[in-house]
Simulated assay, not measured.
Amino acid sequence: MSFSITTWNINSVRLRMPIVEQLVLKHRPDILCLQETKVPNDLFPLAPLRAMGYEHIIIHGQKGYHGVAIASRVPLAEDHRQDYCNVGDARHISAVFERGNRRIRLHNFYVPAGGDEPDRTINPKFGHKLDFIEEMKNLKASAEPNTSAILVGDLNIAPLEHDVWSHKQLLKIVSHTPIETDGLIEVMKRGGWHDLMRQHVPANEKLYTWWSYRAKDWEAADKGRRLDHIWSSPDLGPHLQRIEVLKEARGWERPSDHVPVTVHLSL
């Protein structure tokens, strides 16, 4: 049986609920993970998600900023919210679901963007991002016994050369600087995480999930970055069927600058 999980930085869930509905109507993921929901918990739009069959919803939000949510067709248990860097931001949520005889911990992250200047001495936002990534290095894919793991979200870093439109031109641009890319790769290595998005897509092939609002014609320019990620514990690698990056969603009405990414697993 195929089981699907979609991750999407929606950039305000209330503003963009129509395109969430458009996604679900067409693709019907079993679990939908959203980032940058930008809404406090008491105002989160639960009703439209439940109307679409997502009866199990856990949220971690705040007014106007950040925010993550997991909406699921299958039961969720043991939900947890980690306050990375101890600043009170709503940037992480996790829960356990079961599929067949397999128990899986699902993490949903929204890593800080880091501002515009890649220098923590003059840009505290960049320092916050680096500290966040440093703390993520403690997160292990094998943290819980008899439990597989999946990590999704907007990690705001394009770690590989072909995760950006121009490796050379973006080396000094936040999201692709060496200190960020080395840090994220170290998160994967230390945690024993497997990059599912690159399992079937060679590292020398371009792969993007984000296109800037600043581009007059984003599609023609195609100056993208892979900021959104799906990782897993190694045991789930053999169960990967395919990954879908829904590029067309960038052209939907009132779009996010990120597009949905869906993993299909034989579970």
Rank of each mutant, 00 (worst) to 15 (best):
residue 59 I to M: 08
residue 35 Q to A: 11
residue 18 P to T: 03
residue 46 L to E: 13
residue 64 G to H: 06
residue 30 D to T: 05
residue 34 L to D: 09
residue 67 G to Y: 03
residue 41 N to K: 10
residue 47 A to Q: 12
residue 53 G to K: 04
residue 34 L to I: 06
residue 38 K to L: 06
residue 26 K to H: 12
residue 26 K to D: 12
residue 47 A to G: 08
residue 25 L to F: 13
residue 39 V to P: 04
residue 14 R to H: 11
residue 35 Q to K: 10
residue 41 N to M: 07
residue 34 L to G: 04
residue 57 I to K: 07
residue 25 L to Y: 14
residue 34 L to Q: 07
residue 36 E to M: 12
residue 65 Y to L: 08
residue 61 G to E: 02
residue 29 P to H: 06
residue 32 L to E: 08
residue 41 N to D: 13
residue 67 G to E: 00
residue 27 H to R: 15
residue 45 P to S: 09
residue 38 K to P: 01
residue 23 L to H: 09
residue 67 G to R: 05
residue 56 H to V: 02
residue 17 M to G: 07
residue 24 V to S: 00
residue 54 Y to L: 01
residue 37 T to Y: 04
residue 15 L to C: 10
residue 18 P to S: 07
residue 44 F to L: 03
residue 42 D to Y: 10
residue 28 R to L: 14
residue 26 K to C: 13
residue 25 L to K: 14
residue 38 K to G: 01
residue 20 V to Q: 03
residue 65 Y to D: 01
residue 30 D to E: 12
residue 14 R to W: 09
residue 36 E to N: 10
residue 46 L to I: 14
residue 40 P to S: 11
residue 62 Q to L: 09
residue 20 V to G: 05
residue 50 R to C: 07
residue 17 M to S: 01
residue 37 T to Q: 06
residue 29 P to T: 07
residue 22 Q to M: 09
residue 59 I to F: 05
residue 67 G to T: 04
residue 48 P to Q: 04
residue 44 F to P: 01
residue 28 R to V: 15
residue 19 I to G: 04
residue 30 D to H: 13
residue 60 H to Y: 11
residue 36 E to K: 10
residue 42 D to T: 14
residue 40 P to H: 04
residue 48 P to A: 00
residue 39 V to D: 06
residue 56 H to R: 07
residue 14 R to I: 08
residue 59 I to C: 12
residue 54 Y to W: 02
residue 21 E to M: 07
residue 55 E to R: 13
residue 31 I to L: 15
residue 39 V to G: 04
residue 57 I to N: 03
residue 32 L to W: 04
residue 60 H to A: 07
residue 65 Y to W: 13
residue 38 K to V: 05
residue 63 K to P: 06
residue 31 I to Y: 02
residue 44 F to I: 06
residue 38 K to H: 12
residue 39 V to L: 02
residue 48 P to W: 01
residue 30 D to L: 05
residue 66 H to L: 09
residue 31 I to V: 15
residue 37 T to C: 03
residue 31 I to D: 07
residue 60 H to E: 10
residue 50 R to A: 12
residue 48 P to F: 05
residue 35 Q to Y: 12
residue 40 P to W: 00
residue 42 D to M: 10
residue 48 P to T: 01
residue 54 Y to E: 03
residue 54 Y to M: 08
residue 37 T to G: 02
residue 35 Q to H: 13
residue 27 H to A: 11
residue 44 F to V: 03
residue 62 Q to V: 00
residue 63 K to V: 05
residue 20 V to H: 02
residue 51 A to N: 10
residue 59 I to T: 13
residue 31 I to F: 11
residue 35 Q to C: 10
residue 55 E to K: 13
residue 61 G to D: 01
residue 46 L to F: 14
residue 48 P to R: 00
residue 55 E to L: 11
residue 52 M to A: 09
residue 28 R to Q: 14
residue 66 H to G: 02
residue 13 V to A: 06
residue 52 M to R: 07
residue 32 L to T: 02
residue 32 L to K: 00
residue 17 M to R: 02
residue 47 A to L: 12
residue 20 V to K: 02
residue 66 H to N: 15
residue 34 L to Y: 12
residue 17 M to K: 06
residue 53 G to Y: 05
residue 44 F to K: 00
residue 56 H to F: 14
residue 56 H to N: 13
residue 53 G to E: 01
residue 29 P to K: 04
residue 16 R to H: 09
residue 46 L to K: 13
residue 43 L to F: 08
residue 63 K to R: 15
residue 24 V to E: 05
residue 53 G to V: 11
residue 20 V to W: 00
residue 42 D to P: 05
residue 24 V to R: 00
residue 15 L to R: 15
residue 62 Q to P: 06
